[in-house]
């Protein structure tokens, strides 16, 4: 499972990626690498395709062009192996409102088959241990976000994909997320985050997504 010579340290690598959204090309020729312990921040204006790239890395969206590799081999060849080592926290919380916070986290860990921390500890890391038995239905948006992020701690995965993780979080929760991310990176974990605001903690690499040149393949731009 050693990386190839040219990309010795890169564990996750995207090459020449392009995405279509409703017949429209939203980005193209995108390359990135993430190595152990690294944070990659995706920036770009609204609609640039940060969420799409995030979902593409997760494997939910099929690339229109290009390829993503994990430990040197294409994710497409072993999607389940990749999924087992990756947690995607989308901009939706993905929580069941009829279940309590702890039940949601337990379910998540049991579906993935391996547990790294009990739900209580994970919730405590985000300062909501006392809400463990409260059905998510009664929680505020910020509390739900914390429960959703606590999933990162209940099942082990070396790659975290965080899509707008700071939405609805207050300053203390943002600090907590920062230290959770730092601890994950210190242990060799990797994080990709799409966010407008800055994540606290040690800075990482930045990848800016720019829209493709709209004048590119027309002979006469209407300028």
């Amino acid at each position: 499972m050693q990386g190839q010579v040219s990309t010795a340290a890169a564990v996750l690598e995207g090459r020449d990626l392009a995405a279509l959204r409703g017949e429209r090309l939203i980005f193209a020729n995108l390359d990135f690498t993430v190595s152990a312990g690294e944070l990659l921040k995706l920036v770009g204006r609204n609609g640039a395709g940060k969420s799409t790239l995030m979902r593409m890395i997760a494997g939910l969206v099929t690339p229109f062009a290009g390829q993503i590799s994990w430990h040197g081999s294409p994710v497409r060849d072993d999607p389940d192996g990749f999924c087992a080592d990756m947690i995607y926290a989308g901009h939706q919380d993905g929580l069941k409102t009829a279940l309590s916070a702890a039940e949601n986290l337990d379910l998540f860990a049991r579906l993935r088959g391996i547990r790294s921390q009990p739900a209580d500890q994970a919730l405590a890391a985000f300062g909501i241990a006392d809400l463990a038995d409260l059905p998510v239905r009664y929680m505020s948006a910020g509390q739900r976000r914390r429960v959703s992020l606590a999933r990162l701690l209940v099942a082990p995965a070396s790659l975290w994909l965080l899509d707008e993780p700071l939405t609805a979080l207050d300053t203390s929760a943002i600090e907590q997320l920062g230290s959770v991310v730092d601890a994950h990176r210190d242990g060799g974990g990797m994080v990709i985050a799409a966010t407008h605001a800055d994540l606290p903690g040690s800075p990482g690499k930045v990848l800016e997504i720019v829209p493709p040149d709209p004048f590119e393949d027309d002979a006469e731009p209407s300028a």
């Binding site: 017949e23 429209r24 829209p211 709209p214 004048f215 731009p221 209407s222 300028a223």
Partner: peptide, 18 residues
């Protein structure tokens, strides 16, 4: 029809870029 859709999208994209 597909060409028309493409041209319209391209027009919107160019407007944005300008």
């Amino acid at each position: 029809q597909r060409r028309t859709r493409m041209l319209r999208m391209a027009q919107a994209d160019r407007h944005n870029a300008m």
